[in-house]
């Protein structure tokens, strides 16, 4: 008397499986936007967007490559007030009184841990002031300061090269031109300042 009931159950399970398997397949085949982008592996032809072909701002080629090849970074040297530094910092000592205060008085160095803050010469090359210098002693151009910052902030640099940190300038299409680290952060005091929002949200009214 037991076998018919068992068979009965087995039939039931078979029927349930027959219904569930195609239903499950249909659900997964439906996909959605995640599957859509995961299936899109062909490189995008940037030339289809004609508005973004020229480099809009002064920029230099980054020495590293991201997933899509080469990219550019906004220049820094042409935006610095007193570049070139060797106008004052040549081999002779600076003789102007209070020169440091006049020229660099606005710098408030707040970088690094409180117990071990950074000093000027952690980044600036002492004997060649137009350049930066890494911990290993490699000379770095001011336009390529990301190489300097990336020594410690390597996670941020990895994200910056890929595109998760930092900003692209103006265009999502065309040649990739991004802001340098110093485009957003003050290198001497890199944390963003506390300030007032530029606008406020009105209280929700009616349907908004």
């Amino acid at each position: 008397m037991k076998t018919p009931t068992l068979n009965h159950w087995l039939y039931g399970i078979w029927v349930a499986l027959l219904i569930m398997i195609p239903a499950d397949e249909a659900y997964t085949a439906e996909g959605g936007v995640v599957d859509t982008y995961k299936n899109a592996t062909a490189p995008f032809d940037e030339n289809t967007v004609d508005a973004a072909l020229s480099l809009p701002i002064p920029s230099v080629l980054v020495t590293e490559r991201y997933q899509g090849g080469r990219f550019w970074v906004e220049t820094r040297k042409d935006k610095m007030q007193r570049f070139k530094c060797r106008q004052c910092h040549n081999n002779k000592p600076v003789k102007v009184t209070r020169a440091a205060e006049i020229a660099h008085g606005q710098i408030a160095l707040k970088h690094g841990s409180e117990s071990r803050p950074l000093s000027c010469y952690t980044c600036h090359k002492k004997d060649e002031r137009d350049f930066l210098v890494t911990e290993q002693g490699t000379k770095i151009d001011m336009d390529h300061s990301y190489q300097m910052c990336g020594q410690c902030h390597f996670r941020q640099k990895k994200d910056w090269v890929g595109g998760a940190h930092g900003k692209r300038i103006s265009y999502w299409a065309g040649q990739r031109v991004v802001k340098n680290c110093t485009g957003c952060h003050d290198p001497h005091s890199p944390r963003f300042k506390k300030r007032w929002p530029v606008i406020y949200s009105p209280p929700l009214s009616k349907s908004q």
Partner: peptide, 21 residues
């Protein structure tokens, strides 16, 4: 955005920044 908190791009471009994110 002053902090770079916003990323925009083409989802169908495997090399885009949004795909990296």
């Amino acid at each position: 955005c002053p902090t770079g908190a916003r990323v925009f791009g083409n989802l169908l471009d495997p090399d885009s920044e949004i795909r990296f994110v």
